[in-house]
Structures are given as structure tokens and as C-alpha cells.
């Protein structure tokens, strides 16, 4: 691994409260460009909440989130959600897939290129008049969409409604849609959830491809340890809203705090073999699922 690039995203002292519940407590970490940074942790640890703060869906109670872009820094905690995507170029997917189900796959990808197309259509006026410049821009947008459709093996189904795709394809489409916005940082919330083994492997390829060929930073929430161990460059571990460990996958895997967080306090107890296997990244589904819904206090 080459030395880490300069940070792309810096999160400092992030705290998010919902009434009395502290979902995220004083979490700081950085994510580098051209690296895959994984955020892991048991259910309810606050992972999605961190994403929501980064992408502007929640405004954090305390904390600072900076995206170091090519043309200066963006203070994300101060920006409206849609501007974060538009200006700071942070794209994301959702834990419970959010496509435009009654629009075709290709349309989903064109909506992702909305702002560029909107400019090309002269705020719709040129578009209504059928100007050549707009038609050209639209062809380019379709080509760009086509590129990601090919990468995600969705070109064949480009014209059917997104909502009718099988689950795995919907997950891929959501990633393709996020990539169509030409992001600097891609945030993926459990992209491997519900995928079978082969799909999960393909996903790993895709994420590596995105990191290496498109040179963007990837922030990844994942339960599936095999995915995390295999592809991430850097891992942040959350438990009950706090960061309990950070480092390379290798280091995190052996951290006693992490093992305790995942397996409970009684370390001495004999663990079921499949759980230990999961934790070591040999099994399929994530060990954290075993724990049931955690009530964060």
C-alpha cells in the first residue's frame, strides 16, 4: 500500500443527539482520497447517523465536517443537503435502497446528472426549443450513463423500471447512480447487505475499480466482515456512538475493544465457531447481526 494520500474528508468531534439519545458521541476520523475507508460497528452504533451528518440530512449537534475539494474546502455541517452533493460532490447510497422505482434505469442515471443537463438545457428554455447544444449534452449524459451501466452489468435492463429489478441489481444501480454525479467522495451504506456470495464478490471488484480507476475516496459502512477485511484500506469502529478503534483492517481485527464490542463482555466464554469465523472475515453475513437491535443509551 502506498502512503496514505492527503485527507479528503475530516470529521472532528462529531456529536448527534436525538432528544435524550446520543446517537453519535464525539467521533473524529479522516478519510483519504483513493482509499476505501470502512465504518463498522454493531446495529445502532451510529454509522448511518454519521453518514447522514456528512451528507447533510441531519445537522450535527456538535462537530465539524470538512471536505477538502480540488477547489477549496467545504464545511459540510453548514451546507444544505443538496448543495453538498452539488458543490462538494459527495454522493451516497442508502441502507434501504432509494431508487426512483417508477422511472427506468437509464432515467435514474440521467436524474443523477441533473445539474449539468439543466445548465445545458438553458434552464429548460433551450431544451424546449430543441437546441442542438442540449441534444449534444444529453447524448453525452447517456454515454456516461452507459459507461456505468456496463460497469454494473445493467445495460441490458436500461429501459425497464428500476423498481422491477431484482434486489442485487437495485443495489448496483444505486451505486451507478451515485457515480453518475461524478463525485469526489462516495458514501456507501451497507452495499453488500442482502447480496449473495457471487454478487458480493462482484461488488468488491466494482469498489476497487472505482477507487483505483476513478481515484475517488470511498466511505463504506459494512456489516459483512469478509468485505471489510478484503477491500478496505482503513477501518473506523463505532460502538454505542463512540469510536472505539481505528486503523488498518489487520490492527482492528485484533483490537480487544472491538472483539468485546462485537461479542459481548464475556471474552472467556466459548464462542460459537461461526461467530469467530465471521469476525475473522471468513464467513458470510456479519457477526453484528447476531446481537439484535442494540438500545443505545
Amino acid at each position: 500500500m502506498p502512503a496514505p494520500d492527503r485527507p479528503l474528508l475530516t470529521v472532528e468531534h462529531l456529536t448527534m443527539r436525538f432528544g435524550g439519545l446520543v446517537a453519535v458521541h464525539d467521533v473524529s476520523f479522516t478519510a483519504a482520497g483513493r482509499r476505501i475507508t470502512a465504518i463498522i460497528g454493531p446495529n445502532g452504533a451510529g454509522k448511518t447517523t454519521v453518514f447522514n451528518c456528512i451528507t447533510g440530512f441531519y445537522s450535527p449537534t456538535v462537530g465539524r465536517i470538512v471536505l477538502h475539494g480540488g477547489r477549496g474546502d467545504f464545511l459540510l455541517e453548514r451546507m444544505e443537503g443538496y448543495l453538498i452533493a452539488q458543490k462538494a460532490r459527495v454522493a451516497r447510497t442508502f441502507q434501504n435502497i432509494r431508487l426512483f422505482p417508477r422511472m427506468s434505469v437509464l432515467e435514474n442515471l440521467l436524474v443523477a446528472q441533473h445539474n449539468a443537463l439543466m445548465r445545458a438545457s438553458g434552464m429548460s428554455v433551450l431544451g424546449l426549443l430543441g437546441a442542438a447544444g442540449f441534444r449534444h449534452a444529453e447524448r453525452e449524459a447517456v454515454d456516461h450513463a452507459r459507461y456505468w451501466l456496463d460497469r454494473t452489468a445493467l445495460a441490458d435492463v436500461a429501459d425497464i423500471d428500476a423498481g422491477t429489478l431484482p434486489y442485487g441489481a437495485q443495489r448496483r444501480l444505486e451505486i451507478a447512480r451515485a457515480m453518475c454525479t461524478r463525485p469526489a467522495l462516495l458514501c456507501l451504506d451497507e452495499p453488500a447487505a442482502g447480496l449473495n456470495h457471487a454478487e458480493s464478490r462482484d461488488l468488491n471488484h466494482l469498489l476497487r475499480f472505482i477507487r483505483d480507476e476513478h481515484e475517488i475516496g470511498v466511505l463504506l459502512i459494512e456489516h459483512d466482515m469478509s468485505v471489510v477485511m478484503e477491500i478496505s484500506d482503513h477501518v473506523v469502529v463505532l460502538d454505542y456512538g463512540r469510536k472505539i478503534a481505528e486503523g488498518s483492517p489487520e490492527a482492528v481485527r485484533h483490537s480487544p475493544d472491538v472483539i468485546r464490542a462485537y461479542l459481548g463482555e464475556e471474552e472467556g466464554e466459548a464462542l460459537p465457531p461461526e461467530v469467530t469465523a465471521d469476525l475473522k472475515g471468513e464467513g458470510g453475513a456479519g457477526a453484528a447481526h447476531e446481537r439484535g437491535p442494540a438500545e443505545t443509551q
Binding site: G19, T48, N52, F57, Y58
Partner: peptide, 8 residues
């Protein structure tokens, strides 16, 4: 009413 934060 209690404030409601849209769950994402």
C-alpha cells in the same frame, strides 16, 4: 408536538 426528524 414532538419535533420529528425525518429518518433517512
Amino acid at each position: 408536538g414532538k419535533p420529528e426528524i425525518e429518518k433517512v
